[in-house]
Computed example of a mutant assay.
Amino acid sequence: MTTILVTGGTGTLGRLVTERLRAGGHEVRVLSRHAQPYAVDLRAGGAGLDAAVADVETVVHCASTPRGGDEQAAAHLIGAARRAGVGHLVYISIVGVDRVPFGYYRTKLAVESQIERSGLGWTVLRTTQFHDLLVQVLGALSRPPVLLLPAGARAQPIEVAEVTDRLAELAVGAPAGRAEDMGGPEVRSLESLARAYLKATGRRRAVVNVPLAGKAYRGFRAGGHLTPERAVGKGTFEDFLAARRG
């Protein structure tokens, strides 16, 4: 039995990873800002973090936020992991962080670099966006009577449970460096995904594609965030929407 710490263990992915590892017989500690007994703000570090990683063999780093602070949080986590003699640090990242000049992606790439230079055994898994996130975005965009989308944009959403299984598998194995990317089963236009969402939720909205400007938009439009050659996911967006209704 391995003692594993999951950061962000109350989030969409971290919660499922925790459940999956515990079902496999591992002792799992959950670290988040509010989860006792390991309630720690990684951006601040401190004694609570050292206590959380004490006697831990593997850390699965799921904690992340587009609001900033990920690099500082990673530095604190890596420092604590070194002091504790952690053997394996597993990080969940995003396909395209090295190809699309988007602020959050740049941060994720910087954290990857920190981990690679940490001196710890490490594994990084990049995946495409989760179905859950796409639903959140489309839910927000569909509040007005007209649903505006970035013209020419595509997505390759993946089921979070499938990522959970792969991340848990990597966590109990030896450090693997850069694992093979994981992408959803289909590369779809954002418009087709939006229309599927509207149909599933019973909303009637006009859908308008709007050209945008900027390097990040050009990167997304060019498909830098996609991995069609690694379309290993099974669950489609429609499968996810049907399960939500059930």
Score class of each variant (00 low, 15 high):
Glu19His: 11
Arg67Pro: 02
Val28Pro: 07
Leu226Asn: 09
Arg154Tyr: 10
Gln72Trp: 04
Ala110Phe: 00
Tyr105Leu: 06
Leu198Gly: 13
Tyr91Asp: 12
Phe130Val: 07
Arg218His: 07
Tyr38Asp: 15
Val56Phe: 08
His61Ala: 14
Thr164Gln: 00
Lys199Ile: 14
Leu125Phe: 04
Ala179Ile: 04
Leu138Thr: 05
Ala74Ile: 06
Arg218Ala: 14
Gly202Phe: 10
Thr65Leu: 12
Leu125Thr: 00
Gln129Ser: 15
Pro157Asn: 15
Tyr38Pro: 12
Leu31Lys: 05
Gly184Cys: 08
Arg188Ser: 13
Ala84Asn: 15
Gly68Gln: 09
Leu149Lys: 01
Thr58Arg: 08
Asp50His: 13
Asp98Arg: 10
Ala222Ile: 02
Thr236His: 03
Leu193Ala: 09
Gly183Glu: 00
Val163Tyr: 01
His26Phe: 08
Val30Ser: 06
Ala80Asn: 00
Val28Arg: 00
Leu170Tyr: 04
Lys234Cys: 07
Leu120Lys: 10
Ile158Gly: 02
Ala155Arg: 02
Pro150Ala: 10
Leu21Ala: 03
Phe240Asp: 05
Leu198Cys: 15
Ala51Gly: 08
Met1Asn: 08
His34Gln: 13
Gly87Lys: 15
Leu13Cys: 02
Ala179Cys: 06
Ala174Glu: 13
Gln156Tyr: 02
Leu89Asn: 03
Val187Arg: 01
Ala196Asn: 09
Leu31Gln: 13
Thr12Gly: 05
Leu21Thr: 05
Gly214Cys: 15
Arg188Ile: 05
Tyr217Lys: 01
Thr128Arg: 06
Gly183Phe: 08
Arg205Val: 13
Leu21Cys: 11
Met182Lys: 03
Val187Glu: 08
Glu112Gly: 12
Arg33Gly: 06
Arg22His: 05
Val86Thr: 11
Ala176Leu: 14
His26Trp: 00
His131Ser: 12
Leu49Glu: 01
Ala155Gly: 08
Ala110Ser: 11
Gly25Arg: 04
Val59Arg: 04
Thr123Trp: 09
Val95Phe: 04
Gly173Thr: 11
Leu49Ala: 04
Ser189Glu: 04
Glu238Met: 05
Leu77Met: 01
Phe240Ala: 00
Leu133Ser: 01
Ala231Cys: 10
Glu19Cys: 04
Tyr38His: 15
Gly183Ser: 11
Leu77Trp: 02
Tyr38Met: 06
Glu169Met: 01
Val160Phe: 01
Ala84Gly: 03
Gly14Met: 09
Gly8Ala: 11
